[in-house]
Amino acid sequence: MDLFGESSNWETKLKPILKKYKGKKHPLDYQNTYQLLIMVILSAQDSDANINAISPTLFEKFPTLNSLAKTDFDSLLPYINKVRNYVTKAKWILEIAETIKNDKDIPLTMQGLTALKGVGRKSANVILRETNKPAEGIIADLHVIRVAPRIGIIKESKDGNKIEKDMMQVLPKNIWSEIGMAISFLGRETCRPKPKCSECLLTGICLYYAAEVA
């Protein structure tokens, strides 16, 4: 079977998870675009649960980008010092705040977002999806990196950017906005490192299931 051919008809095959997870909010518990941007940056190589735990105090102290722009490094650190790589992330966040200054000026394009320190394609794709902007790529977080090759959409790789690029070649653009997050939710809930195949909606098309379980 040619996994990279249009004959694969992935839009139809993936419909069960597209339907189940359509529009489901990202696990980061943000209230606006400013909070989403900061939390996405903080969540790199850390858990969403940890970022959700520290964010209420952080945003009570710094409710806007403008308030962050007016603070300094030493004042910010106590609010994020439980986050992995917090020193580097503090520098990135302060630079972004000083550059953009106002929440309404946060760029909402792939080019604009990835120009910001600490925002790669994965983070930008999350922000574009959550703010209902046109997709310019596909979210490829650690769950997608694990699950998409298991299903058989693309070949295995540890490189998120390669996974994203390969998925963009295979999947129709009209599902880009939702499919990355749908696969991510499947990976969080069902297709864990030790997968719960008996609970999965995609066993009928999954290469891993066909090879390992069926």
Rank of each mutant, 00 (worst) to 15 (best):
K13L: 05
K196L: 15
R188W: 06
L3D: 05
H26V: 01
D105A: 07
R121P: 10
I41Y: 04
L202E: 00
L36Q: 04
K13R: 10
R150W: 13
I38V: 11
E189S: 09
I127H: 02
A90D: 08
Q169I: 01
K104N: 13
T12A: 15
T12G: 11
R188G: 00
A49C: 05
Y34N: 01
K196D: 14
I51R: 00
G180H: 01
G204T: 06
E6R: 13
Q169F: 06
M110H: 10
I96C: 08
M1L: 14
V144D: 02
T203M: 04
I145K: 10
N125D: 09
A135H: 06
W10M: 00
A214C: 12
R121M: 08
N125C: 11
S184Y: 00
M110A: 06
Y79I: 09
H143D: 07
K13P: 01
K155W: 08
L36C: 04
R150P: 05
M167D: 02
S7C: 06
K104V: 12
L28F: 03
Q111T: 15
I54H: 04
S7F: 09
V144F: 03
G118L: 11
D29P: 05
L108N: 05
Y34L: 00
D48T: 02
G137L: 08
Q35R: 05
E189F: 08
G187K: 03
L186I: 03
D72F: 06
T109K: 09
E98G: 14
T88E: 13
N85K: 15
T203Q: 03
E11P: 08
L76H: 08
Y209M: 04
D166P: 07
I139E: 07
A140P: 03
K70Q: 15
L36E: 00
E178T: 09
S184V: 00
Y30C: 02
L65I: 07
E164P: 11
L201R: 09
M39Q: 01
F59I: 02
S47M: 06
P56T: 00
D159N: 15
S67W: 03
E199R: 09
A140C: 03
T57D: 14
V83F: 11
S123N: 13
